[in-house]
Design a protein around this nucleic acid. Sequence first.
DNA 1: ACCATGTGCTTCAAATTTGAACCACACTGC
DNA 2: GCAGTGTGGTTCAAATTTGAAGCACATGGT
Lengths: 152, 152
Amino acid sequence: MGDTKWLNDDEMVLWQAFLTAGALLDRRIEEQLKAESGLSHVQYEVLVRLSAAEGGELRMSELAADVLTTKSGLTYQITQMEKAGLVRRRSCAADVRGVYAVLTDKGRARLEGAAPGHLRVVRAHLIDVLSDSQVRVMREGLQEVVRALGGE
Amino acid sequence: MGDTKWLNDDEMVLWQAFLTAGALLDRRIEEQLKAESGLSHVQYEVLVRLSAAEGGELRMSELAADVLTTKSGLTYQITQMEKAGLVRRRSCAADVRGVYAVLTDKGRARLEGAAPGHLRVVRAHLIDVLSDSQVRVMREGLQEVVRALGGE
DNA sequence: ACCATGTGCTTCAAATTTGAACCACACTGC
DNA sequence: GCAGTGTGGTTCAAATTTGAAGCACATGGT
C-alpha cells in the first residue's frame, strides 16, 4: 500500500492544537471542579445527564454512552457517587437485569452548586476566546468529526 | 458575583461536540495504535517528540511538557518504554540531577512503522472530513484556546 | 417449552494516572 | 562558604481506567 499522505502545515498545527487544547482544558476543568465542588469531570457529566433526563434517571448503558465512558467505568463511578449520596440505583421493572441510575436531591443540589463555576471555566477558555463566526464554523466542523466517528 | 451566563445553542453544541470528538477520536487512535503497533498514544507522542529533537533526546521535564503529561506520568512511561527497548535514559553532564530520554534505533523503527497507520486515522476522522477553510478557522480558533490556557 | 444467542451490568486483575512527598543537587544572596 | 529556596526526577499509595470474563436474564426461532 502506497505512500503515506503526511499532514501539511495547517493540518499539522490543527491536529496539535486540537490535542493540546483538549488536554489543557480537561486539566483545568478537572482541577476547578475538584477544588470547588469535589467532583470529577465524569461525575459532573453524569449529574448533568441525569438532571436533564425524564424523572432524573437513566439506564446504566445509556448513561455510559452519554458520558463517553465504558460500562465498567460507569459502574465504578456510580458506585462512588452512590456512596457520596449523589445518586442511587433502582432496578428496572421491565427488565430484571436493567439498572437505573437515579439523581438524588443531594445530587441535584451538588450539580447546581457546581454548574456556575464549571461554566465560567468553559467560557473563559473556550467560548469567550472565540468569535461568533468561529463558534459556528467550529461547531459544524466538530459535528462532522463526531459523525465521522460514529457518534450517532 | 451575579448570575451565571449560560451557553446558547451554538455554544452548547460546540462544547458538547468538542468533548465528544476528543473522546471518540482518542479512543480510535488508542485502539488503532495498540492493535497495529503495540503502542499507547502517549508512547507514540513520546517517540514523535524525541525523533524530532536534536540528537533524538530530550530532558524529562521538557518531554513531559511536550506530551502534556505529568512528571510522574512520564517517569512511568519512559520506564515502560525503556523495558521495551524503545528509549533509554542518559544522565545529563551539565546537571547531575538531569536525565535525558534518548530514542533508540528500535524506537525510531517502531515510530516509522506506526506513523502511517496513525496518520490514516487522524486523516480519516479529523482532517479529511473538514474543508480547507474549516481547517484554517479551526486551527486559529484552537490556537486561541491553547493560548488562553497558557499553552505558551 | 427449549435452545442458542444476545444484552445489561458487574467483577476482576492489570495497567495507568494522579498528586503529594521526597531526595539530591543547583543557585542565589548574604 | 553557607543557609535558604528552587528544580529535576523519582517514588509511593490511592484512585481510576481498561478489557476480558462472568452471571443472570431476555429474546427469537423451532
